[in-house]
């Protein structure tokens, strides 16, 4: 007993215990994330193809892809896709959160139901969207024709911009609940007293929103946008299922192109370079997260 006590005490010192407690996370993240990531970055600096190690060529793969118009198109659309989708999710997510933050009959089931898009397996919900966006069988087109809003079926995916915006809408659909729930949490953390004080000062609803709600929601906004942007920028499943990068590469993004080059085409080095390149954008995003967390 006496011999164990000092050992326990030493174990309990913040320094030792601290390292001990972060060990599991460190093993998982170093072994299964950092190490493969370094391997991936290394691949991007070589001429590796599938089954062949290749030679070190420095930044040549990056030079090649930046000269490639398809890559530049993919990079541009990735960013455009992310910006539009994030903006849409933010706006609609906040609106939905403001609605759900009120007590009304059925608010509980509404909250659960509204989360469905985020919960459903993406591959399968993308298949349902394929039907809703179908040029011949779209139930949406059918409904709009019935309502006399349009005359013929909408060609959602048949033109470059049609396909791009359709994908953005589907992405908003999937990510909106994530924003809504985050904002709902943010709203519940705001003290009611603030609003009462504002009401006494004669502020109307919009003024209260601008002066109280929005400023207090800013930290969570940063976090939601940053985390969600990372997901959106590296979205794969949705685009691969719905358009496969088409028509004529209009909806190609970093991940679809990397997949096509590295996996189907076997050009591991170049594929890795394409996959690694968005990390630049993500480091910028991560910087904002880290900063906002530090500020707290």
């Amino acid at each position: 007993m006496t011999s164990r006590a000092p050992l326990l005490a030493r174990l309990d010192s913040p320094r030792v215990l601290g390292y001990l407690l972060i060990t599991p996370a460190a093993i998982i993240l170093l072994g299964l994330l950092a190490y493969p990531l370094l391997l991936g970055i290394w691949l991007s600096l070589t001429t590796a193809t599938i089954g062949k190690t290749g030679e070190f060529v420095g930044l040549q793969n990056y030079a090649t892809i930046f000269a490639d118009p398809i890559f530049r198109g993919a990079a541009l659309f990735s960013v455009f896709y992310t910006v539009c989708a994030e903006f849409g999710k933010l706006l609609l997510g906040l609106t939905l959160a403001l609605l759900l933050n009120q007590r009304f009959r059925g608010y509980r089931i509404s909250r659960a139901l509204m989360l469905l898009p985020w919960v459903a397996p993406t591959v399968l919900s993308a298949l349902a969207w394929l039907w809703l966006l179908d040029p011949q069988f779209s139930a949406l087109s059918w409904l709009l024709i019935r309502l006399h809003l349009i005359h013929s079926n909408i060609d959602f995916l048949g033109s470059g911009w049609g396909a791009r915006f359709s994908l953005i809408v589907v992405n908003i659909w999937r990510g909106l609940p994530y924003f809504a729930i985050g904002y709902l949490a943010g709203l519940q953390g705001i003290s009611k007293d603030l609003y009462e004080a504002a009401a006494i000062d004669g502020a109307d609803g919009w003024q209260a929103f601008r002066r109280i709600t929005w400023p207090l929601l800013l930290p969570i906004t940063t976090i939601l946008v940053a985390f969600s942007s990372i997901f959106t920028l590296t979205d794969f499943q949705l685009i691969w299922t719905i358009t496969h990068g088409g028509p004529t590469d209009a909806t190609q993004v970093f991940t679809t192109l990397a997949y096509q080059r590295a996996i189907s085409g076997g050009q591991l080095g170049e594929g890795a370079a394409i996959a690694v390149s968005p990390i630049v954008f993500m480091v910028i995003l991560a910087y904002f997260v880290v900063r906002s967390v530090r500020e707290k």
């Binding site: 990531l37 991936g40 996996i263 996959a275 690694v276 990390i279 480091v283 997260v289 880290v290 967390v293």
Partner: peptide
């Protein structure tokens, strides 16, 4: 936090 920014599509081959 930085670990969060690594997308699976890059990682799966290595």
């Amino acid at each position: 936090f930085l670990a969060y920014i690594v997308p699976p599509a890059i990682l799966f081959i290595p």
